[in-house]
Each structure stands twice: as structure tokens, then as C-alpha cells.
């Protein structure tokens, strides 16, 4: 932050002489203070997880959910300034609805990420606005089965469509992360917020790239996600937190292609394993010390 006080950090529409937009960089600082949020793209679905820091004992447990549904097959988790996140989600829902209005089909996750990237980027261009103080992780499942036009009736030939190209695989799990600059990439595993470094280190150990053979399953992904959030929380151990977790499976999977909260039993199991794994590590460390 050597340039503080030089004046180039006061307005969005002004570059510093070395080509930086300080307002965006400050927005990134806002994100770095938020609870850790991660997304994992598994073989048969996507998991979103969030370390929700408890800011007051007066808040009801398990209320005030933070992971939002955008369309039936898409969820968003974000880290940073909460109200900015709400606005982001609201815009994402508008985009998803408008896509449905035009094309009578759900928006592909990639198109949603593209549109939201453009939207966020526009907030880095004008002096009258400030950039988004969040990094958002967008996860979803594009149907791999044929999806008919919304509202259409009739079913076509009984034998199915002719002339399909064999071996064409469509749809599947998708995961994107959008930063305050509007930059976005598709990821196998994404992490943001306070514990992102630890989380990324853990994500890199998982088998998520299909090129390396069979990827981890959705259920494994849920357990890993819980563990990673617990690992990422280690550095701010003094603060209470709640784990929030949602998932989206294939159409023939447990959520039927929809974005839903992870069932209680599975989540509790994942949290139990996460805690056990951490204690195991502690024991190891203790042993080493001895």
C-alpha cells in the first residue's frame, strides 16, 4: 500500500501511473476478511460450503442462510461484504429469469458466470460507484439429459430423435469464481475469504481434474468440503462459526439436478469426520513434539 495518499486510490475511474485500480484492490481486502467460502466440482455434482462466522450470540443458530439459489440448478456462495453479496445474488436471479424468458430453458452456468462477470466489471469503470466487496463462487449442474422447451407439449418420435452424434457429452457440473475486478475463471475447486490459502492447499490435494483419472464423488466432496472449512478455520479458532453446505447433483443423483442444502444426517457425519480429522492431526503434532 505504498500509494496510499497519492490520490490515485480515491476514484474508481482513475488509474495509478503504474496501471492499477486501487479501489478494486481495496475491495479484495474486504473479501480477505470474510469467512472462508469454497466450491468443489466433483464427478457427479458440485458442493458449496461456507464458514459462517457468528458475529453475535443473539443470532439464532442455523438461521440467516448465506448460500443462495439462483435458478433451480445453480447456487451462489460469497465471501466479503454481505449486502454486496445479496445484490449480486439478486442480479444473478434476474439474469437467470431473463434467460428463461427469452430461451424457455435454464441458463447454463457458464453463461450466468459470463453475465455476472460483465456486471461486476462494470462497477470498476465509473467514479460514481464502488466495486463489489465480494468474491462469489457460482456452482451448478447443466442438465445432461435432453431438456425440452419450457411449457412445450408433446414428446416427438417414440424411438427418440434420429441422427444424434454418438459420444457427445453435454451438461455436467460447473464451478466458477468471480472476483471484485469482474475477473472470473472456471475451477475444479475454488476458495475465497480469510482461510483461502489453507483451503486452496487442501483443495489441491484432492483428485478433481478428470485428466488424472476418476474424480472424487459428490459424497466424498461433501466430506472434504466440511473438513476443508474446519481446516481453514484453524487460524481464527477463537471465533465461533457455523458450517453451511449445499450441493447440486446430476439429474439422476440425490438432488435430481437441483441446488439444495446438504441433508442433516450427511452434514453431521461430514462435520464429525472433519472434527475427527483435525483432532487426529493435533495428536500427530503432539506426538511429533514429544
Amino acid at each position: 500500500m505504498t500509494s496510499i495518499g497519492t490520490g490515485y486510490d480515491l476514484s474508481n475511474s482513475v488509474f495509478s501511473p503504474d496501471g492499477r485500480n486501487f479501489q478494486v484492490e481495496y475491495a479484495v481486502k474486504a473479501v480477505e476478511n470474510g469467512g472462508t467460502a469454497i466450491g468443489i466440482r466433483c464427478k457427479d455434482g458440485v458442493v458449496l460450503a461456507l464458514e459462517k462466522l457468528v458475529t453475535s450470540r443473539l443470532l439464532k443458530k442455523d438461521a440467516n442462510k448465506r448460500i443462495a439459489t439462483v435458478d433451480r440448478n445453480i447456487g451462489v456462495v460469497h465471501s466479503g461484504l454481505l449486502p454486496d453479496g445479496r445484490h449480486f445474488v439478486s442480479r444473478a436471479r434476474d439474469e437467470a429469469q431473463s434467460w428463461r424468458g427469452t430461451y424457455k430453458a435454464p441458463i447454463p452456468v457458464s453463461s450466468l458466470a459470463n453475465r455476472m462477470g460483465s456486471y461486476v466489471q462494470a462497477f470498476t469503470l465509473y467514479s460514481s460507484v464502488r466495486p463489489f466487496g465480494i468474491t462469489a463462487i457460482v456452482g451448478g449442474w447443466d442438465a445432461e439429459t435432453d431438456v425440452d422447451v419450457d411449457g412445450a407439449v408433446g414428446s416427438g418420435p417414440k424411438v427418440g430423435a434420429g441422427g444424434k452424434t454418438k459420444g457427445v457429452k453435454e451438461g455436467g457440473p460447473y464451478l466458477y469464481m468471480i472476483e471484485p475486478s469482474g475477473l472470473y475463471w472456471g475451477y475444479y475447486g475454488a476458495a475465497t475469504g480469510k482461510g483461502r490459502q489453507a483451503a486452496k492447499a487442501e483443495l489441491e490435494k484432492l483428485k478433481l481434474d478428470p485428466k488424472d483419472g476418476e474424480c472424487i464423488s459428490l459424497e466424498e466432496g461433501v466430506k472434504e468440503a466440511a473438513r476443508i472449512i474446519y481446516v481453514a478455520h484453524e487460524d481464527s479458532k477463537d471465533k465461533d462459526f457455523e458450517l453451511e453446505m449445499t450441493w447440486i447433483s446430476a439429474v439422476n443423483g440425490p438432488t435430481k439436478g437441483r441446488h439444495e442444502e446438504v441433508p442433516k444426517a450427511l452434514k453431521e457425519e461430514a462435520e464429525r469426520l472433519a472434527k475427527a480429522a483435525l483432532e487426529g492431526e493435533d495428536e500427530d503434532e503432539e506426538k511429533m513434539e514429544k
Binding site: 411449457g151 407439449v153 416427438g156
Partner: peptide, 23 residues
């Protein structure tokens, strides 16, 4: 129309503007 994902498909839109997928 024909596309890679779905192969061939036929839709009909009669006067009122309803949409029907047909063989």
C-alpha cells in the same frame, strides 16, 4: 432442425402460438 446434442427434432406452432413437439 438438427443439432449435435439432440439430433433431429420437429416442432409445430399453430395459429394461437402454442408449441408442440412432434414425431
Amino acid at each position: 432442425g438438427w443439432d449435435h446434442r439432440h439430433g433431429g427434432q420437429v416442432y409445430s406452432i399453430p395459429l394461437g402460438g402454442s408449441l408442440h413437439k412432434q414425431a
